[in-house]
Design a protein around this nucleic acid. Structure first.
Lengths: 157, 157
DNA sequence: ATGTTCAGGTTGATGTATCAACCAGGCCAC
DNA sequence: GTGGCCTGGTTGATACATCAACCTGAACAT
């Protein structure tokens, strides 16, 4: 009875944030897709693999880095293998295969990253500037902390 | 040649933001799904319809409000109709039917909104506090403005 | 050695997002 | 009126996300 109409100041600010997040995300995503034929998921996997020295890591480690569910990662890897961006590599313990960047995958990510980074700077980092960026990030960190507290409260793993 | 390893200060802050956005989003989404059996998409459609006085609006208006592509909206509505949350209503111009909240849909959204709002406050608004929230929102607005400029630069509709 | 357990990975089913192709009905020209 | 157009909606195909069920092979116990 009434919540429908008048949003408070704070709620409008919340919506501004939501809008910004949505637009920024879709802009970056569309750029990657259009220019480099990479989805956000592809990009994330490729970046994580690149950050590993050998361009190769156990699936479990990749799952931890991306914080994805194992099944999501498995499906994603299947598609990326089909497209030749990564390959599965058997290890001594055959239960836990590795994932390795192919040359094609390495080429793709090295093409995409510079432009993507440039875009992040132009659209976000430079817009905020040093000072505001620091405040912004600290606020984000606070929210993250709060989320963690709530999570361990709900499921005290 | 180097971008792989050392992220600058700014890039780490960018990642903090990305992390926060991801976690906050998935937390809220899972809550809606678990407790009320509503996806984020369902929630958005229902909220927009509720904000219309007659609980009913032309599809095009809903598309504008959500800023979704017509086909995405059409698919979503098809599913929601099947679940009895909304219904399609023919108008005098039979090309452009309306969408209307059913009683079930109205009940669902009215159940979900209060808890959801509470959560947004607990996890975001209250964590930031008045002052920081205002700064945060203004930063978001700036980013949004920049995005708009870039968009009309790319496709000068 | 055999069987039980179990962590981690895969698979299948369903819901969601996006693109392209198509369709339908009102509009205008003639 | 008849025919072409144009806007907006639907449909189909594919990629992605999520959940539950299942599989697999090493490890340990007996």
């Amino acid at each position: 009875m009434g919540w429908e109409q008048d949003l408070g100041e704070a709620d409008r600010m919340w919506r501004t944030y939501i809008e910004m997040a949505k637009h920024l995300n879709s802009h970056l995503q569309q750029h990657l897709q259009r220019e480099y034929d990479l989805s956000a998921a592809d990009f994330e996997v490729l970046v994580r693999l690149t950050e590993s020295k050998r361009r190769e890591m156990p699936v479990a480690e990749l799952a931890a880095a991306t914080q994805w569910e194992k099944s999501r990662l498995s499906h994603q890897l299947t598609r990326m293998v089909q497209r030749g961006l990564v390959e599965r590599v058997d290890t001594d313990d055959r239960r836990y295969p590795d994932v390795r960047l192919t040359d094609k995958g390495y080429a793709a990510i090295n093409q995409a990253v510079p432009e993507h980074t440039k875009m992040v700077h132009a659209l976000f980092i430079d817009v905020l500037g040093h000072e505001r960026l620091a405040g912004f990030a600290e606020a984000c960190a606070d929210v993250l902390r709060t989320l963690d507290e709530h999570r361990e409260h709900d499921c005290p793993l």
